[in-house]
């Protein structure tokens, strides 16, 4: 603890980031530029999320990190350890117990409460970027609310695949104003973005942007009248806990093409198993 300031960043940096967070909360969905710092990890490992977490953590917080829903991947473990060492905060894998949850590409299955903060790691914050490479132009499009181009992307999807094939980082409109990239969460999670009790903060370290959704914000996934948004998931039950309402990962389990589907949210899955729900790949009867 004596080697570092609390939560690694110096207080001036945290103030700067908090100002950006407050501005982001005041203008939901608007990308606030901030002076992203070098962090002791490579870009793409969550430097944006880590800086936001560092700026909002207090010594009384309980911290949880999930990577694609899992608490036990290298990335999740190393970020959790990072804050254990630099902030000395409590850590947990239980969604309910955490006060700050840093996430890479998932929203926990368990509904979040007020008093909780969900911090997203964002690789590319600009939803218009793939069709319009000029930053000056995309900024103008946001400020003038010119979002026709976003629908061009969805149009291209339908014309090529017959349906909207975008399955993650599915663009949303926030409070009828800003179009926002919800980070690469599966579109299954999109409905959870809106009307959430917890504060949602998004940090993009390399791109130096922070944006936010205050509690109970209206968030709409973009779509066409004749191709409405659908929050899709694999059409199976979880092989471990038999849940039918959770987002599933597909696992290849042998060399003959055998596979199983399990909850991507490990905490949710383990809690269900502990409560006696047993899936078909876990010795239980066929859940479906």
């Amino acid at each position: 603890m004596i080697e570092y300031n609390f939560a690694y960043l110096d207080e001036q940096t945290k103030r700067m980031i908090r100002r950006a967070i407050l501005k982001g909360l005041a203008i939901p969905g608007y990308q606030v530029p901030f002076a992203s710092r070098e962090m002791p990890m490579p870009y793409g490992w969550g430097t944006g999320g880590v800086q936001v977490s560092a700026a909002v953590l207090t010594p009384d917080d309980t911290f949880k990190v999930i990577d694609q829903g899992a608490d036990d991947t290298t990335n999740a473990v190393s970020i959790r350890t990072f804050f254990e060492r630099t902030a000395g905060v409590q850590t947990t894998t239980a969604t309910q117990e955490a006060t700050v949850i840093q996430t890479r590409h998932r929203i926990p299955e368990e509904p979040l409460n007020d008093g909780q903060i969900l911090v997203y790691q964002v690789p590319i914050p600009e939803p218009l970027r793939f069709l319009e490479p000029r930053e000056s132009e995309t900024r103008k499009m946001h400020s003038l609310e010119e979002y026709g181009l976003m629908h061009v992307k969805l149009y291209e999807d339908i014309s090529r695949h017959g349906h909207i094939a975008t399955s993650y980082a599915y663009p949303v409109k926030v409070e009828g104003r800003y179009v926002m990239d919800p980070s690469p969460i599966p579109k299954f999670d999109n409905p959870k973005l809106g009307d959430m009790a917890a504060i949602q903060l998004f940090g993009a370290g390399r791109e130096q942007r922070i944006y936010a959704l205050p509690p109970y914000t209206q968030v709409t996934s973009l779509d066409f009248e004749d191709h409405p948004f659908e929050a899709s998931k694999a059409d199976h039950g979880c092989g471990m806990c038999a849940a039918t309402d959770s987002y599933l990962d597909e696992l290849i389990i042998d060399d003959t093409g055998g596979r199983m589907f399990v909850c991507s949210d490990t905490d949710y899955c383990e809690a269900r198993q502990a409560a006696g729900h047993i899936g078909k790949d876990n010795g239980g009867k066929d859940a479906a």
Binding site: G148, L149, Y155, D223
Partner: peptide, 17 residues
């Protein structure tokens, strides 16, 4: 099609068909 449709979508058309 997307090139022609962009102006329509820019003025608020939201019906793919």
């Amino acid at each position: 099609g997307g090139n022609v449709g962009e102006r329509l979508m820019a003025v608020g058309e939201r019906h793919y068909g």
